[in-house]
């Protein structure tokens, strides 16, 4: 469960990207964060995933107040989230398999077990046959699926994505939507920031609409 109260993020220079946002996302829900460009979707995703620190307000995830946590505790909290970015943030100095292995290495899993789980995640997104390929050799849709495999390999309780279909063609976007829906069906909380209306038409998720940083 994610509960935000009066969450505000003010950047140096005075820009308030998120203003007094209060909302609640129950475990297992699929929630879309929508709004026009510059509405604060990406900032809200970064706040929920603890990449950004709020200027004020509180954010409670699974009963833990993230705004009160010490810096050293944040990495352990982040391991409960699976993050997918519009630009994927894949590492091009290693294979697809080694990209997916990274969260498991961070978690300290024994190598053999980590490889087994990484291959299972690649299989889930249909990329097992390309495990040895460098991400640069993958198509845009495949890269996004690889990013999803990396996000889910650690079995997160919350899958958070920022415009995951933003750079994809319609067919690839549908594949990605279906993958998110699959994870939602098995109980994973899915939070997606997007302006893609297809999500709403296909899955009728809960919607959190932002306008100039405010929840409306």
């Amino acid at each position: 469960m994610i509960e935000a109260s009066n969450l505000t993020k003010r950047y140096p220079g005075g820009l308030e990207a998120v203003k007094d946002a209060s909302f609640r996302i129950d475990a297992g829900q699929m929630v879309l964060i929508t709004g026009h460009s510059g509405a604060g979707k990406t900032t809200l995703v970064k706040l929920i995933s603890t990449i950004e620190k709020p200027t004020s307000g509180s954010l409670v995830v699974n009963g833990q107040n993230l705004t009160a946590l010490r810096r050293s505790a944040l990495p352990h909290v982040r391991r409960h989230f699976g993050l997918v970015f519009q630009d994927q943030k894949l590492l091009f100095d290693r294979s697809a398999l080694h990209n997916v292995l990274l969260p498991l290495q961070i978690a300290g899993l024994p190598h053999r077990e980590a490889v087994r789980r990484a291959q299972a995640a690649l299989d889930k997104v249909g990329l097992l046959a390309r495990e040895k390929a460098n991400p640069i050799a993958l198509s845009g849709g495949e890269q996004q699926r690889l990013a999803i495999a990396r996000a889910v390999v650690n079995r997160p309780t919350v899958l958070i994505a920022d415009e995951p279909t933003g750079n994809l063609d319609a067919e690839s976007a549908t594949e990605i939507l279906d993958l998110f829906a699959d994870f939602h069906r098995v109980g994973v909380t899915v939070v997606v920031a997007t302006h893609d209306q297809t999500w709403i038409e296909r899955y009728h998720p809960n919607v959190l609409r932002l306008d100039h940083g405010r929840v409306v």
Binding site: I51, P75, H76, R78, R79, K89, L102
Partner: peptide
């Protein structure tokens, strides 16, 4: 830098 940024986001400790 890219690896460090990603690792930080997905829960790597210092």
């Amino acid at each position: 830098a890219a690896e460090i940024e990603v690792a930080r986001m997905i829960g790597a400790t210092d």
